[in-house]
């Protein structure tokens, strides 16, 4: 029996398994009796084909990385194959790759221009391997103002779509101001790593979370977004392990801050909560390379069809369209 026909067969029998249990024919499965429904109610179980549901939506991954741990071209090439495998398996039309500098040197983030230029070069190289599926965002460190500006120009010229920054500098640090203004001109979103954890980034610091001090927290986004209402910010990965209720509540009244749903955490109700607080236009699909969760958490939500389409694809595509980088 092929995998597909087996699945179809089980789906087809599931509804009536309760009545089948009475017949001798079922024993042919040699499955333990306790696996069969014992409920005496006749509530039918819906036929649900998850892969069909996965395939139903176009997807644009707003938060996904190349291999963050390697500068080796061969390693990156192999990793790119896994990204393509993901895009096919879960029907993701486009991946916006990034390679922020995550490396710590004695606990301090590496903020050198050499590091961000090297990292961007890796993304640019990987993008070229599968240009129909992969595009990329550029990284920099705003304390190196000139180098950052030069880098932005270089990367935009080579087709990158937006900015991706990390924890070298807080998003509302004055060093960001000229960069934000540049991004306003480019009509591109600034995607910044973000966290909410007690003891991180200035939030209840008596609980030391032992993280770099410049990790951006929602209050930092609220601050910069208020200063630059015409700029667009992407608050990274509300599924990244932090307190997503706090995040969404804090960002509620900042209409130019978007969130992506990526991250390894996929708490039930996370996506619903985000849409309830931020509206259906400010929530973006992303995986942060946690592929199953990224799709599962949205399919499992109570969002409408329209809302799911917006989150999987349209919201981020509308943002990219402003900068002329939309994918359709």
């Amino acid at each position: 029996m092929s995998e597909l026909s087996r699945r179809k067969f089980i789906a087809g029998t599931a509804v009536s398994a309760g009545s089948l249990a009475l017949s001798g024919g079922l024993m042919a499965f040699k499955e333990p009796q306790h696996l069969h429904p014992t409920s005496d109610t006749d509530t039918p179980r819906a036929k649900y084909d998850i892969m069909q549901d996965v395939a139903k939506y176009r997807k644009l991954d707003s938060h996904v990385h190349v291999n963050l741990a390697s500068t080796d071209a061969e390693v990156q090439k192999k990793y790119a194959e896994s990204l393509i495998d993901y895009s096919r398996r879960l029907q993701v039309q486009k991946l916006v790759l990034s390679n922020p500098v995550t490396r710590l040197i004695n606990g301090v983030p590496d903020g050198s221009p050499e590091a961000f230029i090297r990292n961007n070069n890796i993304v640019l190289a990987v993008m070229k391997l599968y240009p129909e599926v992969l595009t990329g965002s550029f990284t920099f460190n705003p304390v190196h103002a000139k180098e950052s500006m030069d880098e932005i120009k270089r990367c935009v010229d080579q087709g990158m779509t937006n900015a991706k920054v990390y924890y070298q500098t807080k998003i509302n640090d004055p060093s960001y101001y000229p960069i934000v203004e540049k991004m306003i001109d480019l009509k591109m979103i600034i995607h910044c790593h973000a966290e909410v954890q007690i003891g991180v980034g200035g939030y209840r610091m008596k609980y030391n979370g032992f993280k770099p001090k410049n990790v951006s927290i929602p209050e930092d986004f609220v601050d910069i977004a208020k200063r630059y209402p015409e700029a667009m910010f992407q608050y990274a990965h509300i599924g990244g392990g932090g307190d997503w209720e706090y995040m969404c509540k804090a960002l509620k009244n900042s209409p130019n801050v978007y969130v992506d749903t990526s991250g390894s955490n996929n708490e039930e109700h996370l996506v619903d909560f985000a849409v309830a607080h931020l509206g259906e236009d400010r929530v973006l699909f992303g995986s942060d390379n946690c592929y199953y969760q990224s799709v599962g958490k949205i399919l499992a939500s109570n969002l409408t069809e329209t809302q799911k389409r917006k989150i999987f694809f349209e919201n981020f595509n509308n943002i990219l369209r402003k900068g002329g980088r939309n994918v359709d």
Binding site: R204, P218, E245, Y246, M247, K249, A250, K252, H277
Partner: peptide
Amino acid sequence: PIYAGWRDD
């Protein structure tokens, strides 16, 4: 009062 959004709440 030290949790986000409490004034709205």
